[in-house]
Amino acid sequence: MSTETLEQTEEVAVVKKPAEGLLSKRRKAFITDPLNEDNPITVQVLGICSALAVTVKMEPTLIMSIAVVFVIVFSNLIISLIRNLVPNRVRIIVQLAVIATLVTLVNEVLKAYNYEMYKVLGAFVGLIITNCIVMGRLEAFAMGNKPYDSVLDGIGSGFGYAWIILTVAFFRELFGSGSIFDFKIFEAVGISNFATNGLMVDSIGAFVVLGVLIWVQRSKTGYVEH
């Protein structure tokens, strides 16, 4: 986290430039960095709990991704808008209150319009509140940057989280249940006796897939832990 705070102060200094393009190179980096080189899950290793818990199947994972992107973007926006009003001593509480409100909204909407998913995701939607990615972005970015930049940062981190858990879910559902979005893919191509792998349905399967994913990614980007 310490290196990140350093980076943040640098970014704050750059913001002073006038009339910057809506998607300038610097701003593009807000979105593209978390997708790969600074991915919240595989590089920063945040939000692992939910990445393990909800990725048994694609559909709940997709709903979870949407929920996290929504929460992270809007909490970044709101915190960034009120960042100069927030008393420093209670800022963590204020951040939590904003996140918790948004998460509760998502939960209530799910309960009303997609009860099936509400039951599947259960506690995990509520646990977005404790997802370090969201709070990490608020503390490290939105507290010190303008609203538009914060929204971009939220989109970047949200999708960085989303594509990783969707990839994990893809492999877990494929090998664990032999389907994709509940569509029996192996039966469709004529392999009716495909032996599903129970390990993939368990959280252990998520660890394995995630581990392989991190390995592949780091061997490409050359990232090493300091």
Binding site: T101, E108, A112, Y113, K119
Partner: peptide
């Protein structure tokens, strides 16, 4: 925050009741 949440809860209550019934 409290006002917002209670408004949502009130507003969504009928839809939630319906989904629970359907379930």
């Amino acid at each position: 925050v409290g006002g917002l949440l209670s408004l949502t809860s009130q507003g969504l209550a009928p839809a939630q009741k319906k989904s629970i019934e359907l379930d």
